[in-house]
Design a protein around this nucleic acid. Structure first.
Length: 271
DNA sequence: AACCAGGTCTCGA
DNA sequence: TCGAGACCTGGT
C-alpha cells in the first residue's frame, strides 16, 4: 500500500482523531468498524487489517499532493518552520457522522477526557469487532437507548449528542450533499444544528467533508493568530483572514499550528 | 487545590 | 451583530 509522503506519528497524534493509540512501534485504531494495526519504518508501512487498501488510502488522504499543499500554506517563516518540523503530518478523511459526534463531545474539554468520553460511548453502544474492540456506534444504536448516554460522563454535551444522533437517524443530515456543496453552504448548514457552532462546523468540514479551506479556531489557534499575525476579532473575521492567507489548504495550516502548540505544552509540562 | 479545557448558547446593548 | 456569563466534569 502506498500512502505517499506521510508521517504516521504526527498524523495520528496531532489531535484530529481520538481513537488511535500506540502500542510499541505500532498504532492501533478502528476505522469504519474494522481494527487497523499499522506501523512505519522510514517509507515502509506495515499493515494488519481486513480493510481493503483503497479504503485506507482514502482515510489517510493518500490522494493529497503534499507538495501542492506545502506550496499553498508556506506563506511565511512561521508556517514554513512548522512544515519542516512536522513534515508528513497529514489530514485524515474521517467518517462524517463519527467526526460530527466526536467534535460535539470535544466542546470545551480536553483531549484525554474526549478520548475517554468517546471510548465509553463505543463500549456502551458500538458493535463488537474482531480484535476485541468496538466500532463507533451508529445513530440508530444510540437512539435505541437514549438513557445509556447519561452514564458516559458527557456532562452538558449529553443532550446535544443524543439530539444529533436522533437527527442523523431520522435522515436529517445529508453529508454527501454538504461534501458536494461549497464550504460556505456547508458551514452555514452545519451551524444550524444544536451543539454545532462555528468551530465544530469547521472541524467537520475539514476533517470529514473535504472542505480543506475550513480553518477551525479554538483558544490555542486564536492566541497564535493574534501573536503571529496580529489578527483578532470575531470568529468569522479571524477565520476569513486565515482562509485568505492559506487558501485552499488552510485546514492543513491549522493542523500544523495546532500540533505545534500541543508540542509546546508537552514540553512545558515535562519542565 | 485551583485553573482550564479542540465552544456553544443565551441574553442584553 | 457583538461581547459577557454560564456551563458538566475531570486532567494537570
Amino acid at each position: 500500500m502506498d500512502l505517499g509522503d506521510i508521517d504516521l506519528d504526527h498524523t495520528l497524534s496531532c489531535g484530529q482523531v481520538f481513537r488511535w493509540r500506540k502500542e510499541g512501534d505500532r498504532w492501533i485504531g478502528v476505522v469504519h468498524g474494522h481494527e487497523v494495526r499499522i506501523g512505519q519504518r522510514g517509507k515502509r508501512i506495515d499493515l494488519e487489517t481486513d480493510l481493503p487498501n483503497n479504503v485506507l488510502e482514502r482515510y489517510f488522504r493518500a490522494d493529497d499532493d503534499m507538495e501542492e499543499v506545502y506550496a499553498f500554506i508556506s506563506h511565511d517563516d512561521y508556517v514554513r518552520g512548522l512544515v519542516r518540523r512536522f513534515h508528513g503530518l497529514r489530514l485524515i478523511r474521517q467518517d462524517p457522522w463519527e467526526c460530527s459526534a466526536s467534535y460535539i463531545l470535544a466542546t470545551y474539554s480536553n483531549i484525554p477526557r474526549i478520548r475517554k468520553m468517546i471510548e465509553r460511548i463505543c463500549v456502551m453502544y458500538g458493535s463488537e469487532i474482531e480484535g476485541g474492540g468496538h466500532a463507533f456506534p451508529t445513530p440508530a444504536q444510540i437512539v435505541q437507548n437514549e438513557k445509556g448516554a447519561e452514564t458516559c460522563g458527557l456532562g452538558f454535551r449529553c443532550e446535544r449528542f443524543v439530539e444529533f444522533a436522533k437527527r442523523m437517524a431520522g435522515g436529517g443530515v445529508d453529508f454527501e450533499g454538504l461534501r458536494a456543496s461549497s464550504y460556505e453552504i456547508c458551514h452555514k448548514r452545519l451551524v444550524s444544528f444544536e451543539g454545532i457552532g462555528d468551530k465544530v462546523a469547521d472541524c467537520i468540514a475539514v476533517f470529514s467533508l473535504d472542505h480543506m479551506e475550513a480553518f477551525p479556531i479554538d483558544v490555542r489557534i486564536k492566541r497564535v493568530l493574534e501573536s503571529e499575525y496580529g489578527v483578532r476579532g470575531t470568529y468569522g473575521k479571524v477565520s476569513a483572514f486565515a482562509r485568505e492567507r492559506f487558501g485552499a489548504y488552510a485546514g492543513y495550516a491549522q493542523e500544523y499550528i495546532y500540533y505545534a502548540e500541543d508540542a509546546k505544552n508537552r514540553k512545558e509540562v515535562k519542565g
